[in-house]
């Protein structure tokens, strides 16, 4: 399923958090959303999910306007991993992941076989099956991030939106999480992720969207979207481009200008 924004604006009072944004998030690709703090990255994701009402414009999920989706079908179609979504109660990892099945559960019906299978499968896809029974507060930050990611996967949604899932993780765990997202995209899922780390975005995202003060500053494949003029204008930095052994270009050696 694709998501398209048509001239979308979101206003908080007089301030425009998103200003006339038109873009498309394509299935089967990982789209990185980057931009300085306050550029509207989270607002973009929240608007796509219907968590934030838009003041102008139209958002379509698979050609159908967002407002025409029922709460439940939308919850089954889109999974969201919010920033700082740490569980408030020390549930076992398996129960956290099972929360991802809520869109399929009735008010009083217990999870059935299919729900248990989906939850266990999501856990094993994230290499988290080994600590399924452990309480999330006893896991390391990297393990907890994988459990939360598994929670989002357990829904089996066609769209996955993640807000800064890689923040506060060490490089190995960051890369592992990015690999999981790439794998989801290979399965045909629409993956969009906000990232602070431009190196990570340039190296691992198929498409990059650059936001600046609510406006779309650039969009496209990582090499073109993160061009030198864009880096200078939006972030006030310059960077080197390094080619890794696999032949992919990565931004590195950032410096202020």
């Amino acid at each position: 399923m694709s998501i398209s924004f048509e001239n979308v604006s979101v206003h908080f009072g007089a301030r425009a958090a998103l200003d006339d944004v038109t873009l498309r998030l394509a299935p089967g690709a990982v789209t990185g959303i980057v931009g300085p703090n306050g550029a509207g990255k989270t607002t973009l994701l929240r608007a796509a999910l219907g968590l934030q009402s838009v003041s102008h414009g139209l958002i379509r999920i698979r050609d159908k306007p967002l407002g025409d989706w029922s709460r439940r079908t939308l919850a089954r179609a889109m999974a969201y991993l919010p920033q700082g979504g740490e569980p408030r109660w020390p549930l076992p990892a398996r129960e956290v992941v099972m929360l991802g099945r809520l869109p399929y559960l009735g008010r009083f019906t217990a999870p059935d076989r299919a729900d248990h299978v989906a939850a266990m499968e999501a856990l094993s896809r994230c290499d988290a099956a080994a600590f399924a029974e452990r309480r999330v507060d006893e896991l390391s930050a990297g393990e907890r991030a994988r459990v939360l990611f598994a929670r989002a996967l357990a829904t089996g949604a066609a769209i996955l939106l993640a807000d800064e899932p890689a923040a506060f993780l060490d490089p190995a765990h960051q890369l592992r999480l990015v690999d999981l997202m790439r794998e989801e995209a290979r399965r045909g899922i629409t993956v969009a992720v906000t990232l602070h780390d431009l190196a990570l975005a340039s190296r691992h995202c198929d498409e990059v969207i650059v936001l600046r003060e609510g406006c779309l500053a650039a969009a496209g494949p990582a090499e073109t979207a993160l061009s030198d003029p864009t880096l200078a204008a939006v972030f006030g930095i310059a960077a080197e481009r390094v080619c890794d052994p696999a032949g992919r270009s990565t931004l590195a050696a950032f410096r202020r200008i």
């Binding site: 929240r46 968590l51 999974a79 919010p82 979504g85 408030r88 809520l102």
Partner: peptide, 20 residues
């Protein structure tokens, strides 16, 4: 009950899971 379970993940995540 179900809504309270979902709120364990915070308000935005709960809403994204279809909880009012």
């Amino acid at each position: 009950g179900r809504g309270l379970d979902a709120l364990t993940l915070g308000e935005d995540a709960a809403r994204s899971l279809g909880v009012d």
